[in-house]
């Protein structure tokens, strides 16, 4: 530390952004982190990795849901990182009733809980189910679709870190193309995960015509909170898909989580939008679309695309086209904004 530090002006961290407790903003614009009134569904002391996007996303989502329901909230949790790191014996980070189900059945267990509350006349108690991308897009997909189709009174939140991180970073159907995982090694002619047709869960949820579907990002916690609050103001099946970077699985710096989440949005790879009864009602516009390479380069899981003098331009172009297609499909560019 320099000897002039004592005389330096106090800096409010992240000044001018909407990420964390900016005390320069009007009270209404501040994040809940700056508020002493924070609800705290998940308290500190859990054992998530440093920079865990899921810990952040779940805390804000659940806090928001807790506020919206005045604390009358039950959480159902599929097997996964969130389940493991918040509940190491004999501790728990949960301040609300919390039910660990199995890997693939959280939507169905939550549907049962909601049905029981209805029968018992306790519909004031609300149910949130949550899982990672593996538990949601893969093994729990059938139960999730059933929950949507019956319009069960459950908000399902998927924390998408794009692979099976809890078991050691194996691919899921949410893993992006070319990403290296423990089961998609960066070897051979097509290193990393395959360029598949994709499995867009929010769009699949929308195809069930459920009351509310939204995507959210840990880079925009205000937006995440607002979407959860809105969802809790509705009845029936609701779905929120939160992108949560994972330093361990992505091979990214633990202080890069927010930045990566933001770049995923600003590149067009992860569009932020809301939909009601199957139709998109709102999108978060992008001012300047950034190149996908800017987002991919800091992640070691894509390191094989950026080898010195041997940049894999073909793969990068394919991923760029995916981003561009999203920009077009969801009309993401702000008026006068710049595309890649």
């Amino acid at each position: 530390m320099s000897d002039t530090s004592a005389t330096q002006r106090v800096k409010f961290y992240q000044t001018g952004t909407h990420t964390v407790g900016n005390r320069l903003l009007d009270e209404a614009d501040r994040t809940v982190q700056a508020s002493m009134e924070r609800a705290n569904a998940i308290t500190s002391g859990h054992r998530a990795c440093q920079g865990c996007g899921e810990a952040l996303g779940a805390r804000y989502a659940l806090d928001s849901a807790m506020r919206a329901t005045e604390g009358k909230l039950v959480a159902v949790n599929a097997t996964g990182c969130l389940e493991v790191f918040t509940t190491p014996y004999p501790e728990t980070s949960w301040q609300i009733p919390w039910l660990h189900s199995l890997f693939g059945n959280a939507p169905a267990v939550a549907a049962g809980v909601a049905a029981a509350f209805r029968v018992k006349g306790r519909e004031d108690v609300r149910v949130v189910a949550q899982g990672g991308d593996g538990g949601t897009a893969d093994i729990g997909f059938g139960c999730l679709s059933g929950m949507f189709e019956r319009n069960d009174d459950v908000l399902y939140i998927c924390y998408d870190n794009e692979a099976y991180m809890n078991t050691g970073v194996q691919r899921s159907s949410a893993t992006p193309p070319a990403a290296r995982t423990a089961t998609t090694p960066a070897v051979g002619d097509a290193p990393g995960n395959v360029f598949g047709t994709g499995k867009n869960l929010p769009l699949i949820a929308m195809a069930h015509n459920i009351p509310y579907v939204a995507t959210a990002s840990v880079a925009n916690l205000h937006d995440l909170e607002a979407k959860v609050e809105k969802a809790m103001g509705m009845r029936g099946a609701r779905y929120i898909h939160v992108m949560v970077p994972c330093p361990l699985g992505w091979g990214s710096a633990s202080d890069a989580t927010i930045n990566l989440a933001r770049m995923a949005v600003e590149s067009g790879l992860f569009p932020l939008f809301e939909a009601e009864h199957g139709a998109v009602t709102k999108t978060n516009k992008i001012r300047h679309q950034i190149p996908v390479a800017d987002y991919l380069r800091p992640q070691l899981r894509f390191a094989h695309l950026f080898k010195k003098d041997r940049e894999n331009t073909e793969s990068l172009q394919r991923i760029q086209r995916m981003a561009d297609a999203n920009i077009k499909r969801f009309d993401l560019l702000e008026d006068g904004g710049s595309a890649q």
């Binding site: 593996g134 893969d138 093994i139 099976y164 078991t167 050691g168 194996q170 423990a182 089961t183 998609t184 090694p185 070897v187 051979g188």
Partner: peptide, 19 residues
């Protein structure tokens, strides 16, 4: 296969060796 502890190394090794 599908990832599950404590067997995932079988799948991981297969993902490298089989191709």
């Amino acid at each position: 296969g599908y990832p599950i502890t404590p067997s995932s190394e079988v799948a991981e090794r297969m993902s490298v060796e089989l191709p």
